[in-house]
Amino acid sequence: MAYSFRFGVIEANLDNFLQGLLLGLALAFAAILIGTLIGLLCAFATTAKSRAPSRLVGIYVSAIRNTPLLVIVLFVYFALPQLGIRLGKLESFIFSLAIYSGAYLTEVFRAGLAGVPKGVVDAGRAIGLNGLQRALYVIMPIMWRNCLPALGTTFISLFKDTSLAAVIAVPELTYQARKLNTETFRVAEAWATASLLYLSTCLLIAAGLRQLERRFPKF
């Protein structure tokens, strides 16, 4: 192997990498926040008596889940402006990841809701809680606990998906690695560093989520 590692280049550009990592985390956080709202709304909509909301949610979920995220990102950034909707790079990516995560989170929350015992909801009804109160004080706390493990996996995979923002030149971690790659030709160092940063961040998030699961034991 003729390649000799020189990590000095990484040291000199460490700030860029860390800023890229932070930007990725921020993008994931914003997208997950919106996606969680979408997911909650859609999941609760499917519990409605009428079938129409369920159908609409079904169409949204299967449309999004059967389209590659990269295509969604490119569509929102390049195609939407042609249709008159112009978003900045960051907003565009957050929007893409939000509707994408919304679809996956809808399914996560739906599974969590399915695990809420019907009798317990009846008990909430019986003491006179109205629909909103039942959702807030009975259904959601049980639902959260039910979907905590799946939620963790989804969050981590959504964070990793922020690497796709590089294709529309959002300066997150993958973009920084590619930039260093082309500017210095320290190919292995650049991608090894990016990989390590992704890996360690994901492991940290996973450890945090495990703590959370331990703090809130299964009922």
Binding site: P117, D122, A123, P141, I142, F219
Partner: peptide, 9 residues
């Protein structure tokens, strides 16, 4: 209720 149905949380 027959099955208690306490709020588990």
């Amino acid at each position: 209720f027959q099955s208690f149905n306490l709020f588990p949380h």
